[in-house]
Simulated assay, not measured.
Amino acid sequence: MREWLIHLRKLKGLTQQQVASKCFIERSYYSQIERGTRNPSINVAKNIASTLGFNPLKFFNSEFDFAAEEKRTSSINNTFPSDIISYFNSNEHAHMIYLYNNIQNYYINFLTYLLAVIQKNRHCIIVENEEDYCNINRELEKIYSTTEIKKYLHHFKKGVRCKKNLEEIVSCVKELQSQYKYKESIYIWLHNEKICQYDIIGKLEKSDIELDKILFVQTYKASLVSAEEHIKLMKKYPLLMTDGEIVNSPFFISKKSLVLPSFYIQEDL
Rank of each mutant, 00 (worst) to 15 (best):
residue 55 N to D: 15
residue 73 T to E: 12
residue 102 N to D: 15
residue 250 P to G: 03
residue 175 E to V: 12
residue 189 W to T: 03
residue 38 R to V: 03
residue 183 K to Y: 10
residue 227 A to Q: 12
residue 3 E to K: 15
residue 210 E to A: 03
residue 193 E to G: 09
residue 44 V to T: 07
residue 187 Y to K: 14
residue 180 Y to I: 03
residue 169 I to F: 01
residue 206 K to W: 00
residue 254 S to L: 11
residue 102 N to T: 11
residue 254 S to G: 14
residue 4 W to K: 08
residue 141 E to Q: 14
residue 197 Q to G: 04
residue 48 I to Q: 08
residue 222 A to I: 00
residue 21 S to W: 13
residue 39 N to I: 14
residue 55 N to I: 15
residue 39 N to P: 10
residue 254 S to Y: 10
residue 191 H to F: 08
residue 129 N to I: 04
residue 175 E to Q: 14
residue 169 I to P: 02
residue 242 T to K: 05
residue 87 Y to P: 03
residue 182 Y to G: 00
residue 40 P to A: 01
residue 27 R to I: 06
residue 122 R to W: 05
residue 220 Y to E: 02
residue 129 N to L: 05
residue 86 S to L: 12
residue 165 N to A: 14
residue 50 S to C: 01
residue 213 K to L: 07
residue 130 E to T: 14
residue 105 N to R: 13
residue 172 C to P: 01
residue 49 A to R: 04
residue 264 Y to Q: 09
residue 133 Y to W: 14
residue 256 K to Y: 02
residue 108 I to L: 03
residue 192 N to Y: 02
residue 212 D to F: 11
residue 265 I to D: 12
residue 24 F to G: 08
residue 162 C to N: 12
residue 50 S to I: 02
residue 241 M to A: 06
residue 28 S to G: 08
residue 81 P to L: 03
residue 139 E to S: 10
residue 100 Y to L: 06
residue 180 Y to A: 02
residue 163 K to P: 08
residue 147 T to A: 06
residue 114 L to I: 15
residue 252 F to N: 06
residue 86 S to T: 11
residue 52 L to E: 04
residue 83 D to S: 13
residue 53 G to F: 05
residue 21 S to I: 12
residue 214 I to H: 02
residue 25 I to F: 07
residue 195 I to T: 09
residue 43 N to G: 09
residue 145 S to D: 10
residue 166 L to A: 05
residue 60 F to S: 02
residue 18 Q to H: 03
residue 38 R to K: 10
residue 162 C to W: 08
residue 264 Y to I: 02
residue 53 G to R: 04
residue 47 N to S: 14
residue 147 T to K: 13
residue 206 K to E: 14
residue 14 L to H: 06
residue 212 D to G: 08
residue 46 K to C: 10
residue 110 F to S: 07
residue 84 I to L: 09
residue 26 E to Q: 15
residue 55 N to S: 15
residue 120 K to P: 05
residue 95 H to R: 10
residue 22 K to I: 03
residue 234 M to N: 09
residue 235 K to F: 09
residue 87 Y to C: 05
residue 84 I to V: 03
residue 194 K to V: 11
residue 222 A to C: 00
residue 149 I to L: 08
residue 73 T to Q: 11
residue 163 K to T: 14
residue 2 R to Q: 05
residue 18 Q to Y: 04
residue 45 A to D: 04
residue 125 I to T: 06
residue 245 E to Y: 07
residue 82 S to D: 06
residue 222 A to G: 00
residue 123 H to E: 04
residue 196 C to K: 14
residue 240 L to C: 01
residue 6 I to F: 13
residue 105 N to M: 13
residue 91 N to C: 02
residue 122 R to V: 06
residue 240 L to Y: 12
residue 36 G to N: 04
residue 118 I to C: 09
residue 38 R to D: 00
residue 1 M to T: 15
residue 3 E to F: 13
residue 233 L to E: 01
residue 142 K to D: 05
residue 222 A to T: 01
residue 83 D to A: 08
residue 150 K to W: 02
residue 253 I to S: 01
residue 21 S to V: 09
residue 30 Y to G: 06
residue 77 N to C: 07
residue 209 I to Q: 00
residue 223 S to N: 13
residue 132 D to W: 11
residue 204 L to M: 12
residue 158 K to S: 09
residue 6 I to V: 15
residue 84 I to M: 01
residue 77 N to W: 07
residue 115 L to P: 07
